[in-house]
């Protein structure tokens, strides 16, 4: 399994590093660099940024900034809906057929 976390802001690319676990909130596979520990276990940078009690680092800061651009400028064109759900797990939960 490789890390599914999308790195970057303008030209997102999957990390591709060796995944050692998965995010407890959104389920994507994540490597060591992209996992944070907190009250609800392991989380990806985006989920760690949105949930209280998680230690913030450069990756979570980046995830927070990126999420705010998706929120402000919508998800048209290059930054598609799929990308948005990959950087915005809350939306993914809503769209996830298995959850509903």
């Amino acid at each position: 399994m490789t890390c599914q976390w999308q790195t970057g802001l303008l030209s997102p690319e999957p990390c591709g590093g060796l995944a050692l676990g998965s995010c407890g909130s959104c389920g994507q596979s994540i490597c060591m660099i992209h996992s944070s520990m907190g009250p609800s276990g392991t989380a990806c940078p985006q989920c760690a940024n949105m949930q209280p009690g998680y230690e913030q680092n450069e990756e979570t800061e980046m995830a927070g900034a990126r999420g705010s651009y998706y929120q402000q400028y919508g998800t048209s064109g290059y930054f598609s809906k799929n990308d948005e759900s990959s950087v915005n797990p809350k939306k993914r939960e809503k769209n996830d057929d298995f959850e509903t």
Binding site: L10, Y73, Y78, F79
Partner: peptide, 19 residues
């Protein structure tokens, strides 16, 4: 923040196949 927002919007104009 605001300047990156400008770049972000321009980058959203890129064609999909560039990915």
């Amino acid at each position: 923040r605001d300047i990156i927002g400008m770049l972000f919007r321009l980058c959203a104009m890129r064609p999909k196949e560039a990915k």
